[in-house]
């Protein structure tokens, strides 16, 4: 097992190298660069830069060099632990990301907990009461939940809250707290705001997880070990919770690692629609303005977390399921 984990860890730099090329290529893919889009936005507001200044900025940012040189410069900086400077904000990328990281992780963790706390019990109920009225209701609600894009849900809820209750539910803070330093009152204000994005981001995942839990459990409920368990005198509740639920949750638990990149990405579209101060809008803004080092840094961290998450998932499933554990020890 240890050997296996080591092998996987050694693979990470190789994968990251490949991803870094892909990420860089993607960020570079739109025509033009940061300066051309900057000039365009200046032009649309009526002002302009003279050519001399443009050439100077180009040289300063290295935008006059060929693409592979730009990539090597970026890589060199990254290897020495430097995420570079944001072209747009004129601040270190690491700082920009760090100041939004806390809220991003908090929101993602909350919607993760929300998803699991709601989905697993409902999935269990749905499977053990298959084809009951409540199961049908849950099924319909789930289909709606899966099918509704969450930014759409966000828009509808925002409109509804505003037009019926006069509430503005965008953002994570009330206006007076937005720039205020941290205090108990600010935390309370955050809690007042964060539940709605938590639910909106969690809904689709909850619906999906409920369906998977239900399907996995239904498979297990017909297994012969259920008959054997009943025949040795276990009550239905004891039996269901101890054996089939454990077996049905295994494949789900193994996906927990995949949430790691989610924790960081901050549900880009919903966060933008709801004006949440997390990493999502930062990435979107960076992509639009072709702030390539900021976008590249965020995407590369995202890739790294995805690789790490997959490894965590694999370790988790081996830990949970002795059949897989033995296989890997044997290999």
């Amino acid at each position: 097992m240890l050997r296996y984990i080591l092998q996987r860890l050694l693979l990470i730099p190789v994968l990251l190298f490949i991803f870094s090329i892909l990420v860089f290529a993607l960020v570079q893919a739109p025509p033009g660069d940061f300066l051309t889009s900057y000039i365009a936005s200046l032009a649309s507001s009526g002002s302009s830069l003279d050519q001399e200044l443009i050439d100077m900025l180009k040289a300063q940012y290295g935008l006059d060099k060929p693409v592979h040189i730009q990539y090597l410069r970026w890589m060199g900086n990254l290897l020495s632990g430097n995420l570079g400077l944001s072209l747009e904000y004129q601040r270190p990328n690491a700082e920009l990301i760090a100041e939004r990281l806390g809220l991003t992780v908090l929101l993602a963790l909350l919607s993760f907990v929300f998803t699991w706390v709601i989905a697993v019990p409902i999935g269990i109920y749905s499977a053990t009461h298959r084809n009951s009225l409540l199961d049908y209701i849950v099924t319909v609600v789930n289909y709606i939940g899966v099918a509704t894009p969450n930014f759409m849900l966000a828009l509808v809820l925002m409109w509804w809250a505003f037009s019926y209750f006069g509430l503005s539910v965008t953002g994570l803070f009330s206006r007076e707290f937005e720039q205020a330093p941290w205090s108990l009152a600010k935390v309370a204000d955050l809690l007042k705001h964060i539940w709605l994005p938590m639910i909106i981001i969690g809904v689709a995942g909850t619906a999906r997880l409920t369906r998977i839990m239900r399907a996995n459990l239904l498979d297990e409920l017909n297994k012969p070990y259920m008959v054997a368990g009943r025949a040795r005198g276990l009550s239905e509740w004891q039996l269901v919770m101890k054996y089939p639920v454990r077996l049905a949750i295994n494949p789900l638990a193994s996906t927990i690692g995949w949430y790691l990149p989610e924790l960081f990405s901050g549900s880009l579209i919903v966060a933008t629609v709801m004006n949440l101060q997390n990493i999502g809008p930062l990435l979107l803004r960076a992509l639009i303005s072709q702030d390539m080092y900021l976008a590249g840094s965020i995407l590369l961290i995202y890739c790294f977390l995805a690789i790490l998450g997959t490894l965590i998932s694999d370790i988790l499933i081996a830990w949970l399921d002795p059949r897989i554990r033995m296989e890997k020890v044997g290999a």
Binding site: P224, Y225, A228, G233, L247, N250, P322
Partner: peptide
């Protein structure tokens, strides 16, 4: 069927050797 007495009888008074012994045990216990 789910009464305490019925459950006491299953396993203690009447025991079953189920039809598919190969799958009668949970694989993760």
């Amino acid at each position: 069927p789910n009464s305490k007495l019925m459950r006491k009888i299953r396993g203690a008074e009447i025991a079953l050797i189920p039809q598919e012994p190969m799958a009668a045990f949970s694989p993760v216990h």
